[in-house]
Every structure is written in structure tokens, then in C-alpha cells.
Nucleic acid binder design. Structure first.
Lengths: 163, 163
DNA sequence: AGAAGATATTTTAGGCCTAAACCATTTGGA
DNA sequence: TCCAAATGGTTTAGGCCTAAAATATCTTCT
């Protein structure tokens, strides 16, 4: 409860006049709504989105990844990867091996259990997202996808300029 | 560095086949990119997005808000509001008064300093968002806004069904 | 009035995340 | 060769956030 059913936009009132701010607030509220829902479902399975993301990255790299590669792939800090990997290793979902080439680096791989775990979660995750977006028909989804593509390009342009 | 310039989508490879998942990942990556940028800028001003959101809510309610009202307005947990408000109170940006009507409740208001602080931050925030979205022209922004409206409705429908 | 339930809030334990300081190893010159 | 800079990781301190338990105070029903 108290988890509002309707997706409300923060700052809905006063300051949302400028179109870019209004757009940003709507983007944020939609994303948060979906993300919280997904988080809740992962929690019900005893895991989290961050752990899932890490397993997903490893699943795509059967030869393993270094900590740094994980950090770059997941767009999170190095220290964060250290934390997550250590906990996943404790749960025996990933294995950490020293890199033969570089004694500073270690290579993280999925274990058998990790691979199985991920496969099950990935299937469920698909279904959750499909369910959440079921209210949009395919053309509407495609249109949003394209519009986000434009945003993505705009952001890249804006960021390269810095500020 | 290492903060990728191009906005990459997590899971870009394997599992992003289904259109709804692909859409979700793009939505998430765009939102995160903007949010991290905004967070960084707030940090440079010695504050955070969460604090700003709280001040913004209070700015729109000159008579003050209870903790519970803040929690609902910001879509965050009650305990989180407690934390934020206590820190903002320590910084003298908000004041906490007992509710005359209900001795359980307290009423949080902006102080003069809080109001001034917020006004300055809000102006800066506007400009940051405007800058970030400058790469999109007005029609493109409007189109994305509308497409997100469809998503918003779809989510609301989906959530009311539960799962 | 008195007890049972509903509300408003805080506390606790824990997960995610970051920046900055720090250590170890590798690399690229002078 | 040898050292300075770069690179790979971990640690530390701290901020955000949540769910669940605990408190205190209404409210409501009998």
C-alpha cells in the first residue's frame, strides 16, 4: 500500500512548466515506476536488479570478465563491482580466478549454479517486462523506442559538449 | 573518464531481442544517463537530487507537509523521509513543528534559507535539463512526451492488474 | 469507558551506489 | 636499468533507499 497506483510525477505542479523539465520528470517517473516494480519482484526471488545485471553481463562473456570490464559494462563504479562480485562469489554464483596475464587483475566467471540461476531469472524478467508493457501495442512501443533513440542521440551530443 | 560518452545500453547483446525488453533497457539507460549527470551537478553544489526533491515538494506547500504527505509526494518510504528531513533540519533549510491537531504528526516547512536555497537550485536545475535536452527540437520533445504518456497509461493499467 | 485496530513516525538492519584514498603491478620512457 | 605514470582493484566514509519491527497516538466500536 501507499505505493501509489497511478504514476504521479514529482513536482507535478509549479515548476514543471518548461517543456524540457516536464519531459524529464515524466521520463523519470515512468522509469522509476517500472524499476521499483521489477526490484520488488527480484526481491521476492531473493535477489536484486544489480545482481541480475552482473550475472547477465557474465552470461554474455563465457570466458569471464575482469572487474574493470564489469564496471564499464554495467556503468557502475569499480568499488561497487567489488562488493557485488564478492557477495555473488559467497553465494557460489560466480568464481574469481587470477588472470594469468596480469597479476593485478582477476577474472570473474559464472559457475554452473550461476548460469542456471540466471537462466531462470532472465526468463522471469522477460515475462515481467512483457506484462508491464502489455498495455501498449506494438506500434506504440516502437514509436516510444524511436523517440527514445532521438533522446539518446541528443544526450550524447549534449554530453560531449560538457557544460 | 570511463564514464562512457556514448550512452550504451546494458545487456546490449543477447537478451535484448524481445521488443519490450529492448524498450525497457533503452528507457532505463537514457534515464540513468540524465540522472547521473544531474546528480553530479547537484553534488558540485554540495547537495543531492533527493534533497532537492524534498525542498521542491515543500516549496509547493507553503503551509508545510507532514512526514507522511512528503513520503507520498516523493514516492519514497517513510523512513527515508525521516532521514532526509532530519539532515535538512540540521542544515536549517527546513523546520519541524508539532502538529497542533495530531500529536503523532509533525509539520515540516521551508525556512527562509531553505526557500532561498531552493530557488537558486531550481533555476540551475532548469538550465541543466534544458542544456541536456537541447539536442532535441521542440517537436521531438513533444513526441517523446506523448509517447511516454502512453507508457504511463500502460503501466497504470498493468499495475492495477497486479501479477 | 475500555479495548482493538488504524495511523504517523522512527529505528534497525541491510542493499545499492559513489568519490577519494590507497595498494599492487605493469608499462613506457630517459 | 630504473623510475614515473598508468592501470586494476580494494577499502573507507558516506549518501540514498527499503522492509520490517517498534512507539506513540488517535479512532472506533461495543
Amino acid at each position: 500500500m501507499s505505493e501509489a497506483l497511478a504514476i504521479r510525477e514529482k513536482h507535478d505542479g509549479a515548476l514543471a512548466e518548461r517543456s524540457s523539465v516536464r519531459l524529464w520528470l515524466r521520463l523519470l517517473s515512468c522509469t522509476m515506476a517500472i524499476e521499483k516494480d521489477v526490484q520488488r519482484r527480484f526481491a521476492a526471488h531473493g535477489t536484486t536488479l544489480a545482481r541480475f545485471d552482473l550475472l547477465a553481463a557474465l552470461d554474455r562473456h563465457p570466458d569471464g570478465m575482469t572487474m574493470g570490464a564489469l564496471s564499464r559494462a554495467l556503468l557502475v563504479s569499480n568499488g561497487n563491482v567489488t562488493q557485488l562480485v564478492q557477495k555473488l562469489a559467497k553465494d557460489a554464483l560466480v568464481a574469481i580466478a587470477p588472470s594469468p596475464a596480469d597479476r593485478r587483475a582477476s577474472i570473474v566467471r559464472l559457475t554452473q549454479a550461476g548460469r542456471a540461476d540466471f537462466a531462470a531469472l532472465a526468463a522471469a524478467h522477460h515475462d515481467w517486462i512483457d506484462g508491464l508493457l502489455a498495455g501498449m501495442d506494438a506500434p506504440a512501443r516502437e514509436q516510444l523506442y524511436q523517440a527514445l533513440g532521438a533522446l539518446k542521440r541528443a544526450i550524447a551530443k549534449g554530453q560531449s559538449l560538457g557544460s
